[in-house]
Simulated scan of single mutants.
Amino acid sequence: MAFTRANAPLTCLICGSDEEATSEHIVPQTLWLRFGLDPNHKDLERYRTTLCRRHNEATGKLHRRTEVIELIENGGPFTKKSLGLLADWAVWVTVLLGLSTGEGVLPGDEARSLLRARFDEHGGGLPRGIRVYAARVSEYVRDTTFTSYMVAVEKDRRTVLDYRGTPIGFLGIAGPVTVTESIGLGKIALLVLSRTYPSGVGHNDRLDAAATTVGMERIHPPAATLPILAPRAIDMTALSEVFMPVPDGQDWSLLPDGVKFTLSMFTPADG
Protein backbone atom coordinates (compact mmCIF):
# COMPACT_ATOMS: atom_id res chain seq x y z
CA MET A 1 0.00 0.00 0.00
CA ALA A 2 1.27 3.49 -0.82
CA PHE A 3 2.52 5.58 2.06
CA THR A 4 1.80 9.30 2.34
CA ARG A 5 3.65 12.46 3.23
CA ALA A 6 1.60 15.38 4.60
CA ASN A 7 -1.57 13.41 3.78
CA ALA A 8 -0.77 13.40 0.05
CA PRO A 9 -0.40 10.09 -1.82
CA LEU A 10 3.05 9.45 -3.22
CA THR A 11 3.53 8.00 -6.67
CA CYS A 12 6.48 6.43 -8.45
CA LEU A 13 8.74 9.05 -10.01
CA ILE A 14 9.29 6.84 -13.06
CA CYS A 15 5.91 5.25 -13.86
CA GLY A 16 3.43 7.19 -11.71
CA SER A 17 2.08 4.12 -9.91
CA ASP A 18 0.82 4.64 -6.36
CA GLU A 19 0.94 0.93 -5.53
CA GLU A 20 3.75 -0.43 -3.34
CA ALA A 21 5.34 3.03 -3.08
CA THR A 22 8.75 2.99 -1.42
CA SER A 23 11.33 5.56 -0.43
CA GLU A 24 14.33 5.39 -2.74
CA HIS A 25 17.77 6.75 -1.82
CA ILE A 26 19.02 8.25 -5.08
CA VAL A 27 22.49 8.38 -3.55
CA PRO A 28 23.00 5.00 -1.87
CA GLN A 29 22.69 4.73 1.89
CA THR A 30 26.00 2.84 1.91
CA LEU A 31 27.87 5.97 0.88
CA TRP A 32 26.20 8.26 3.39
CA LEU A 33 26.96 5.76 6.15
CA ARG A 34 30.60 5.50 5.10
CA PHE A 35 30.82 9.29 5.27
CA GLY A 36 29.36 9.17 8.79
CA LEU A 37 25.98 10.62 7.77
CA ASP A 38 22.44 9.45 8.50
CA PRO A 39 20.83 8.61 5.12
CA ASN A 40 17.40 9.52 6.51
CA HIS A 41 18.39 12.92 7.92
CA LYS A 42 16.17 15.78 6.79
CA ASP A 43 19.17 17.60 5.31
CA LEU A 44 19.54 14.77 2.77
CA GLU A 45 15.88 14.72 1.79
CA ARG A 46 16.60 16.05 -1.72
CA TYR A 47 18.51 12.82 -2.34
CA ARG A 48 15.42 10.68 -1.66
CA THR A 49 12.40 10.12 -3.87
CA THR A 50 9.42 7.78 -4.28
CA LEU A 51 9.51 4.72 -6.52
CA CYS A 52 7.27 1.71 -6.85
CA ARG A 53 8.85 -1.47 -5.54
CA ARG A 54 9.66 -2.73 -9.05
CA HIS A 55 11.55 0.41 -10.02
CA ASN A 56 13.18 0.65 -6.59
CA GLU A 57 14.65 -2.80 -7.07
CA ALA A 58 15.74 -1.96 -10.63
CA THR A 59 17.50 1.28 -9.72
CA GLY A 60 18.97 -0.30 -6.58
CA LYS A 61 21.18 -2.46 -8.79
CA LEU A 62 23.17 0.69 -9.64
CA HIS A 63 24.28 0.93 -6.02
CA ARG A 64 25.42 -2.67 -5.71
CA ARG A 65 28.43 -2.16 -7.97
CA THR A 66 31.35 -2.40 -5.58
CA GLU A 67 33.78 -0.90 -8.12
CA VAL A 68 31.74 2.31 -8.21
CA ILE A 69 31.34 2.58 -4.45
CA GLU A 70 35.08 2.03 -3.95
CA LEU A 71 35.92 4.68 -6.53
CA ILE A 72 33.66 7.25 -4.89
CA GLU A 73 34.82 6.48 -1.37
CA ASN A 74 38.54 6.04 -1.99
CA GLY A 75 39.22 7.56 -5.41
CA GLY A 76 40.67 4.44 -6.94
CA PRO A 77 42.13 2.32 -8.28
CA PHE A 78 40.26 2.52 -11.56
CA THR A 79 40.05 0.53 -14.78
CA LYS A 80 38.28 0.98 -18.10
CA LYS A 81 35.46 -1.19 -16.75
CA SER A 82 35.08 0.67 -13.45
CA LEU A 83 35.09 4.06 -15.19
CA GLY A 84 32.41 2.80 -17.57
CA LEU A 85 30.30 1.68 -14.62
CA LEU A 86 30.92 5.02 -12.90
CA ALA A 87 29.76 6.91 -16.00
CA ASP A 88 26.60 4.80 -16.17
CA TRP A 89 25.95 5.40 -12.46
CA ALA A 90 26.51 9.15 -12.84
CA VAL A 91 24.03 9.52 -15.70
CA TRP A 92 21.14 7.67 -14.11
CA VAL A 93 21.66 9.08 -10.62
CA THR A 94 21.72 12.65 -11.93
CA VAL A 95 18.68 12.09 -14.18
CA LEU A 96 16.76 10.71 -11.19
CA LEU A 97 17.94 13.56 -8.99
CA GLY A 98 17.09 16.24 -11.57
CA LEU A 99 13.62 14.82 -12.15
CA SER A 100 12.96 14.45 -8.43
CA THR A 101 14.00 18.00 -7.54
CA GLY A 102 12.52 19.65 -10.64
CA GLU A 103 15.90 21.22 -11.33
CA GLY A 104 17.06 18.87 -14.08
CA VAL A 105 18.22 19.84 -17.54
CA LEU A 106 15.77 17.56 -19.33
CA PRO A 107 12.01 18.20 -19.41
CA GLY A 108 10.14 15.82 -17.10
CA ASP A 109 8.58 13.73 -19.87
CA GLU A 110 11.96 13.28 -21.59
CA ALA A 111 13.66 12.28 -18.33
CA ARG A 112 10.89 9.76 -17.52
CA SER A 113 11.13 8.28 -21.00
CA LEU A 114 14.87 7.70 -20.58
CA LEU A 115 14.40 6.22 -17.12
CA ARG A 116 11.69 3.82 -18.31
CA ALA A 117 13.90 2.72 -21.20
CA ARG A 118 16.73 2.02 -18.78
CA PHE A 119 14.93 0.45 -15.83
CA ASP A 120 12.01 -1.39 -17.36
CA GLU A 121 12.60 -4.98 -18.41
CA HIS A 122 13.83 -4.26 -21.94
CA GLY A 123 16.66 -2.10 -20.57
CA GLY A 124 18.50 0.69 -22.36
CA GLY A 125 21.97 2.16 -22.70
CA LEU A 126 23.26 5.66 -22.09
CA PRO A 127 21.52 8.42 -24.05
CA ARG A 128 23.05 9.18 -27.45
CA GLY A 129 25.63 11.95 -27.46
CA ILE A 130 25.94 12.30 -23.70
CA ARG A 131 29.36 13.12 -22.24
CA VAL A 132 30.50 12.31 -18.70
CA TYR A 133 33.50 13.90 -17.02
CA ALA A 134 35.15 12.94 -13.74
CA ALA A 135 37.87 14.05 -11.35
CA ARG A 136 39.55 12.46 -8.37
CA VAL A 137 39.23 14.99 -5.57
CA SER A 138 42.06 15.85 -3.18
CA GLU A 139 39.96 18.58 -1.55
CA TYR A 140 36.86 20.65 -2.24
CA VAL A 141 37.54 24.38 -2.55
CA ARG A 142 35.52 27.53 -3.26
CA ASP A 143 35.89 30.81 -5.19
CA THR A 144 37.94 29.48 -8.10
CA THR A 145 38.27 31.81 -11.10
CA PHE A 146 36.82 30.09 -14.18
CA THR A 147 35.13 30.73 -17.54
CA SER A 148 31.53 29.72 -18.27
CA TYR A 149 31.02 28.37 -21.79
CA MET A 150 27.57 28.78 -23.32
CA VAL A 151 26.21 25.67 -25.04
CA ALA A 152 22.92 24.74 -26.69
CA VAL A 153 21.67 21.41 -25.35
CA GLU A 154 19.27 19.25 -27.33
CA LYS A 155 15.82 18.89 -25.70
CA ASP A 156 16.28 22.25 -23.94
CA ARG A 157 13.12 24.21 -24.74
CA ARG A 158 15.07 27.46 -24.50
CA THR A 159 16.77 26.72 -27.84
CA VAL A 160 14.83 27.97 -30.91
CA LEU A 161 15.01 25.77 -34.02
CA ASP A 162 14.11 26.51 -37.62
CA TYR A 163 12.07 24.19 -39.86
CA ARG A 164 15.18 22.05 -40.49
CA GLY A 165 15.88 21.57 -36.79
CA THR A 166 18.86 23.94 -36.86
CA PRO A 167 19.36 26.20 -33.82
CA ILE A 168 18.72 29.85 -34.72
CA GLY A 169 18.11 31.54 -31.38
CA PHE A 170 17.08 31.23 -27.77
CA LEU A 171 14.20 32.02 -25.44
CA GLY A 172 14.51 33.74 -22.09
CA ILE A 173 12.07 31.53 -20.24
CA ALA A 174 11.86 30.36 -16.66
CA GLY A 175 13.58 27.16 -15.69
CA PRO A 176 16.75 25.78 -14.14
CA VAL A 177 19.74 27.92 -15.09
CA THR A 178 21.89 24.97 -16.02
CA VAL A 179 22.67 22.65 -18.91
CA THR A 180 24.59 20.02 -16.95
CA GLU A 181 24.17 17.78 -13.94
CA SER A 182 27.01 17.66 -11.43
CA ILE A 183 27.66 15.90 -8.17
CA GLY A 184 30.60 15.63 -5.78
CA LEU A 185 30.77 12.68 -3.41
CA GLY A 186 33.77 11.58 -1.40
CA LYS A 187 36.82 11.35 -3.64
CA ILE A 188 34.99 11.69 -6.97
CA ALA A 189 33.37 14.65 -8.72
CA LEU A 190 31.18 14.03 -11.76
CA LEU A 191 29.80 16.21 -14.55
CA VAL A 192 27.15 15.01 -17.01
CA LEU A 193 26.61 17.00 -20.21
CA SER A 194 23.68 16.15 -22.46
CA ARG A 195 24.04 16.09 -26.26
CA THR A 196 24.76 19.59 -27.57
CA TYR A 197 24.16 21.21 -30.94
CA PRO A 198 27.51 21.52 -32.78
CA SER A 199 29.41 24.78 -33.04
CA GLY A 200 31.66 23.79 -35.91
CA VAL A 201 34.79 21.73 -36.53
CA GLY A 202 36.17 20.01 -33.45
CA HIS A 203 33.13 20.78 -31.31
CA ASN A 204 33.40 17.71 -29.08
CA ASP A 205 37.14 18.17 -28.59
CA ARG A 206 36.51 21.76 -27.56
CA LEU A 207 33.84 20.62 -25.10
CA ASP A 208 36.41 18.32 -23.51
CA ALA A 209 38.99 21.12 -23.42
CA ALA A 210 36.49 23.40 -21.64
CA ALA A 211 35.82 20.70 -19.04
CA THR A 212 39.54 20.39 -18.33
CA THR A 213 39.64 24.06 -17.29
CA VAL A 214 37.78 23.09 -14.09
CA GLY A 215 39.79 19.91 -13.55
CA MET A 216 37.55 17.36 -15.31
CA GLU A 217 38.51 14.55 -17.70
CA ARG A 218 36.17 12.66 -20.02
CA ILE A 219 35.28 9.11 -19.03
CA HIS A 220 32.38 8.66 -21.49
CA PRO A 221 32.55 8.15 -24.38
CA PRO A 222 35.71 6.27 -23.41
CA ALA A 223 38.97 7.31 -25.07
CA ALA A 224 41.54 4.88 -26.49
CA THR A 225 43.65 5.35 -23.36
CA LEU A 226 42.59 5.77 -19.75
CA PRO A 227 42.44 9.31 -18.37
CA ILE A 228 45.05 10.23 -15.79
CA LEU A 229 42.62 11.43 -13.10
CA ALA A 230 45.35 12.80 -10.85
CA PRO A 231 43.89 13.95 -7.50
CA ARG A 232 43.17 17.69 -7.55
CA ALA A 233 41.26 20.45 -5.78
CA ILE A 234 37.74 20.84 -7.19
CA ASP A 235 35.38 23.80 -6.93
CA MET A 236 31.82 22.47 -7.29
CA THR A 237 30.49 25.92 -8.25
CA ALA A 238 32.96 26.08 -11.13
CA LEU A 239 32.05 22.52 -12.06
CA SER A 240 28.31 23.24 -12.15
CA GLU A 241 28.74 26.46 -14.15
CA VAL A 242 31.51 25.67 -16.63
CA PHE A 243 28.76 24.94 -19.20
CA MET A 244 25.79 27.31 -19.13
CA PRO A 245 22.74 28.13 -21.27
CA VAL A 246 22.42 31.29 -23.33
CA PRO A 247 22.83 34.06 -22.24
CA ASP A 248 24.24 33.20 -18.80
CA GLY A 249 27.78 32.22 -19.80
CA GLN A 250 30.81 34.21 -20.85
CA ASP A 251 32.41 32.40 -23.81
CA TRP A 252 30.43 32.04 -27.05
CA SER A 253 32.76 29.67 -28.90
CA LEU A 254 30.73 26.48 -28.29
CA LEU A 255 27.42 27.90 -29.57
CA PRO A 256 25.92 27.13 -33.01
CA ASP A 257 26.32 29.98 -35.51
CA GLY A 258 22.61 30.80 -35.56
CA VAL A 259 22.50 31.22 -31.81
CA LYS A 260 25.66 33.34 -31.86
CA PHE A 261 24.08 35.63 -34.44
CA THR A 262 20.92 36.09 -32.36
CA LEU A 263 22.98 36.69 -29.24
CA SER A 264 25.09 39.30 -31.06
CA MET A 265 21.97 41.39 -31.62
CA PHE A 266 21.58 41.79 -27.87
CA THR A 267 25.15 42.13 -26.64
CA PRO A 268 28.63 42.57 -28.15
CA ALA A 269 30.35 39.23 -28.72
CA ASP A 270 33.45 38.65 -26.64
CA GLY A 271 33.87 34.92 -27.25
Rank of each mutant, 00 (worst) to 15 (best):
Ile188Ala: 08
Asp143His: 05
Thr267His: 10
Val160Arg: 11
Thr94Tyr: 02
Pro107Leu: 03
Thr225Lys: 14
Ser253Asn: 07
Gln250Met: 13
Pro77Arg: 04
Tyr197His: 07
Gly215Gln: 09
Asn40Thr: 15
Leu171Lys: 12
Phe146Ile: 04
Lys42Thr: 13
Gly200Gln: 13
Lys61Pro: 01
Thr4Asp: 07
Thr225Asn: 12
Leu193Glu: 02
Asp205His: 02
Ser240Thr: 01
Gly102Ile: 09
Ile188Met: 15
Tyr149Ser: 00
Gly76Leu: 08
Thr50Val: 11
Leu190Asn: 04
Gly75Val: 08
Glu73Tyr: 08
Pro28Leu: 10
Pro9Trp: 02
Ile173Tyr: 05
Leu229Cys: 12
Asp248Ser: 09
Asn40Trp: 10
His55Gln: 05
Asp257Cys: 00
Leu10Trp: 04
Thr79Gly: 14
Pro176Asn: 06
Asn74Ile: 02
Asp143Pro: 08
Glu121Asn: 14
Asp257Glu: 06
Ala224Ser: 13
Ile130Asp: 04
Leu31Cys: 04
Met1Tyr: 06
Lys260His: 11
Tyr140Ser: 15
Glu67Val: 04
Arg46Pro: 14
Val177Gly: 03
Gly98Ile: 02
Asn74His: 14
Ser82Phe: 13
Ala6Met: 06
Met216Ile: 08
Ile168Glu: 09
Ile173Arg: 11
Leu171Arg: 15
Arg164Glu: 10
Ala210Thr: 02
Glu57Gln: 07
Asp156Ala: 02
Asn56Ile: 00
Cys52Lys: 04
Arg46Leu: 14
Glu24Cys: 15
Glu45Lys: 12
Arg34Ala: 11
Gly60Val: 02
Gly84Tyr: 03
Cys52Met: 01
Glu241Cys: 15
Pro77Thr: 08
Ser253Ala: 07
Glu73Cys: 10
Ser113Cys: 05
Leu207Thr: 03
Arg64Asn: 10
Val160Asp: 08
Ser17His: 12
Leu263Phe: 06
Asp205Leu: 03
Phe78Val: 11
Arg5Thr: 09
Arg116Met: 14
Thr147Asn: 14
Thr225Met: 08
Asn74Ser: 14
Glu103Gln: 12
Leu226Tyr: 10
Pro245Tyr: 06
Ala87Pro: 00
Val242Ser: 13
Ala135Asp: 08
Ala111Trp: 05
Met236Cys: 04
Ile130Val: 14
Val179Ile: 09
Gly123Phe: 09
Thr66Met: 04
Leu83Ile: 07
Ser253Thr: 11
Pro176Arg: 01
Met244Asn: 07
Arg158Gly: 01
Gly271Thr: 09
Arg232Leu: 07
Met244Pro: 00
Cys12Ser: 01
Val177Ile: 13
Leu83Gly: 01
Leu193Trp: 04
Pro221Phe: 09
Asp18His: 15
Gly76Glu: 03
Met150Cys: 02
Asp18Ile: 12
Lys61Met: 07
Lys155Pro: 03
Gly123Glu: 02
Leu193Ile: 01
Glu57Leu: 04
Phe78Ile: 07
Glu57Met: 01
